[in-house]
Computed example of a mutant assay.
Amino acid sequence: MTEQKLHNQAGRTVEHSGDNAGTAFPGASGVLFEQAMAQTRMAVTLSDPHDPDHPLVFVNRAFLELTGYDEDEILGRNCRFLQGPGTDPEAVARLGRAVRDNDVVVVELLNYRKNGAAFWNAVHIGPIYHEDGTLRYIFGSQWDVTDVHAARSEERHARLMEREISHRMKNMFAVISSIVNMLGKTSTEPALGRDINERIRALGRAHEATLQLSFQQGRVDPTQMFRELVGPYTSDPRALDLDGGAVQLDSNSVSILALTLHELATNAVKHGALSSKRGRVALSWRMCRADGQDQPLLRLTWTERGGPPLHGDPERLGAGSEITTRMLRAAGGVIRRRWDTAGLTAEIELPLQC
């Protein structure tokens, strides 16, 4: 049996003796080859391109450690046994095209070890030729890049968070600008700066409470946000009753709801239920659809009970109420206030940008 030198496309040679790479390579060069393959940390395989199923005919120790299989469980099989339910068929097809075209390619695959554990595998394959230019093997190397893949995911998540926070902040400053402009036109009170600051703090509480929900898919439970918004206006937790399910909130609706509930709560402290020790506020919400509309609608009901008797003209709205009414109207929403002997009931409808 004569010694052969196998050339890859880079011009380097892998020396071995004999025709069967699945057995030990006889000869001094074969010993060196096996020792080199045993020492390298990169998993290496050779497959037979002349067999229709491209079976593996050589694997090194690093490949056995990477996959958890024994050598006798691998040799003679196509490398597809590492694939599983999460493996991308398009990535597998890219490998298949490279083998068919005698091309060199690097593809990241989700593969599975013998124990079922998934790992991201950077697979590099390419042809190895005889000195006469005929194809001899398909060389393969594998590298566990699970940590690298996770780092990329974290980086994408960080970029998503950065964009979301930037969007929220731009939206918040736009709302603040609207508050300042409208208050400047409607308010004659000397405490204009205090009013602005109170509304800005309400916005901050709302966005802080919902920041952790920004990256969840689908509906989220806004109970904590509503508690953060209304809770500071009463020292008695029993004065606030929250009832509602998960809804789909966007940053614009968060800002509008923050200002609306802030105005309702401050008015309740000044004139309504929260000005009395026996006063109670119930806030309920649900998602629905308006008649003939496909866009989802958030409907909230604010109900005050146990407050002092009504005095004066409750229909006369202050500057804050005008702001919330205009902001809701600009977003396609509405607020309906109804006063009776029991107290105020406010119904809010706000289209959601989902």
Rank of each mutant, 00 (worst) to 15 (best):
N252A: 11
R278F: 13
V281G: 13
S253Q: 02
R278D: 14
S284Y: 03
V269T: 06
A273N: 04
G272F: 11
E263Q: 09
N267I: 15
C288L: 12
L283G: 05
S253C: 06
A282P: 05
H262Q: 07
L259R: 10
N267S: 11
H271G: 14
K277F: 14
L264G: 02
R278H: 15
S284A: 05
S255K: 09
L261E: 05
L261M: 07
Q248G: 12
R278L: 12
K270M: 07
E263M: 12
A265D: 03
A273C: 05
L264S: 08
K270G: 03
K270S: 10
L283V: 00
L261Q: 05
A282E: 01
S251T: 13
L264I: 08
S276A: 08
R289G: 11
R286K: 04
L259T: 14
N267H: 09
L283Y: 00
A273L: 05
R280W: 08
L261R: 04
Q248V: 07
T266L: 08
A273S: 07
I256W: 03
D250M: 07
L249D: 15
A265L: 12
M287S: 11
L249N: 09
V281Q: 03
R278S: 15
R286D: 00
N252F: 15
V254K: 12
G272Q: 02
V269C: 11
T266C: 06
S275W: 01
T260F: 00
S255P: 03
S253I: 05
A268Y: 00
R280N: 08
N267K: 08
G272W: 13
L264C: 12
V254A: 06
R286C: 06
I256Q: 01
L283P: 02
L264A: 05
N252T: 10
S284K: 09
L264P: 08
L249K: 07
V269F: 12
S251E: 15
A273M: 07
N252Q: 15
L264F: 07
Q248N: 14
H271W: 13
V254W: 09
H262R: 09
R286Y: 02
S276W: 11
A265Q: 06
S253Y: 02
R289L: 08
L264M: 12
R278I: 09
H262I: 00
L274S: 01
G272N: 05
L259Q: 13
G272P: 03
A258H: 03
E263C: 09
A273W: 02
S276E: 13
L274A: 04
S253A: 04
R286A: 10
L261C: 02
A265M: 13
L283T: 00
L264T: 07
S251A: 13
H262A: 01
K277N: 14
S284T: 07
H271L: 10
T266A: 10
G279S: 06
S251N: 13
A265S: 10
E263N: 10
R280A: 07
A282N: 03
Q248C: 13
H262C: 02
R280Q: 14
N252H: 10
A265E: 11
S275E: 04
A258W: 02
R286V: 04
L264V: 10
E263T: 04
N252K: 11
R278Y: 14
S275D: 12
S276R: 09
G272H: 02
T260G: 00
K270N: 10
R280Y: 03
V281I: 02
W285I: 03
G279R: 06
S251W: 15
V269S: 09
L257V: 13
S284W: 04
K277Q: 15
A273H: 09
H262K: 01
S275V: 01
